[in-house]
């Protein structure tokens, strides 16, 4: 269970995120929506401490994440994987090595510097690439891939970290609709099959509706909506996006997807609790 308590991030001139309190059970797929600059990215980056909160706290399974330092902080980042909008892969290294960097936390200094990865780690990495259909590119240099392929490699990298949480910061914003679908399907599969909590920043409403069990809406850094996709009415959507009262606000305008997953396949809180009991969320 990931909780935030009154999480705040103040820059000198403005509040990026103000007093956001959430509780996310293990295994949920959450979509965060809002305008650009509404604080989605900042919120996510505070969870894995790439950005430092100025107020409030984050707890994961009872441990205070905001107070972590040194080695414990690195361990948290290994547990809480992140996928970026610009993929953030190392272009000059090959795909396999990029994926293997997901295991860096578990290595000692010398092993990391000399790029010594064990055979089982290599096999694990190939399997991860396989799940995303990218195993055939394992020895290619990463910057020769297309955007969609790079994002899938980035997800593979996140997978080999054996994370409990996966944060996706606008994972499909730089991708065309077909690749976007592939990536969102991959995230969803990982969420369902491995029981990993996925928190996604999305800027298209229909993607959020199609893939996520729960939607969080941010406006100017404040939490204005927290509920299931059904609860997200047109008025709520307009408010989150700040559309003027006269403007015809069609959700289709924010869409880039090719269709998603039907509503009946979404998980409710009850489903999640049941799954946790069945031990599907591996420890």
């Amino acid at each position: 269970m990931l909780t935030t308590e009154k999480l705040t991030k103040n820059f000198k001139t403005r509040n990026a995120v103000s007093d956001v309190s959430l509780s996310i059970p293990q295994g949920q797929m959450v979509g965060v929506i809002g305008r650009s600059g509404a604080g989605k990215s900042t919120l996510l980056r505070m969870v894995n401490r790439l950005a430092e909160p100025t107020g409030g706290s984050i707890t994961f399974e009872g441990r205070d994440v905001t107070a972590l330092r040194g080695r414990a902080l690195l361990e948290w980042r290994a547990t809480c994987a992140m996928v970026f909008q610009q993929f953030n892969l190392v272009g000059r290294l090959d795909v396999l090595t990029n994926v293997l960097t997901g295991r860096l936390y578990h290595h000692g200094f010398v092993a990391s510097m000399l790029q010594l990865f064990t055979a089982s780690e290599r096999a694990f990495a190939i399997r991860a690439l396989d799940r995303l259909g990218m195993a055939h590119t394992a020895l290619q240099q990463a910057d020769t891939l297309s955007g969609g392929q790079m994002q899938r490699v980035a997800i593979a990298r996140a997978l080999v970290q054996e994370p409990r949480i996966l944060l996706a910061d606008e994972p499909i914003a730089s991708l065309d609709p077909l690749n976007a679908k592939v990536v969102m399907d991959a995230l969803r599969t990982i969420n369902r099959e491995d029981g990993i909590t996925v928190v996604c920043n999305l800027h298209t409403l229909d993607t959020a509706r199609s893939y996520c069990d729960r939607i969080i809406g941010l406006k100017d850094g404040v939490l204005v909506f927290d509920g299931t996709p059904e609860m997200l009415t047109q008025e709520m959507a307009r408010e989150i996006y700040g559309a003027e009262a006269d403007d015809a606000f069609a959700e289709g305008l924010t869409s880039t997807s090719l269709g998603g997953v039907p509503a009946k396949q979404r998980l409710t809180e009850r489903d999640l609790a049941k799954n946790a009991q069945l031990g599907l969320a591996a420890s």
């Binding site: 089982s120 096999a123 990495a125 195993a135 099959e193």
Partner: peptide, 24 residues
């Protein structure tokens, strides 16, 4: 093939991957 944990990779698994992707 959803070996989701590193611990789940046994020696036969390594061997089969090695056969398919030797240069890895």
């Amino acid at each position: 093939m959803t070996a989701a944990t590193l611990a789940g990779i046994g020696p036969d698994e390594i061997a089969s991957v090695r056969r398919m992707h030797p240069q890895a």
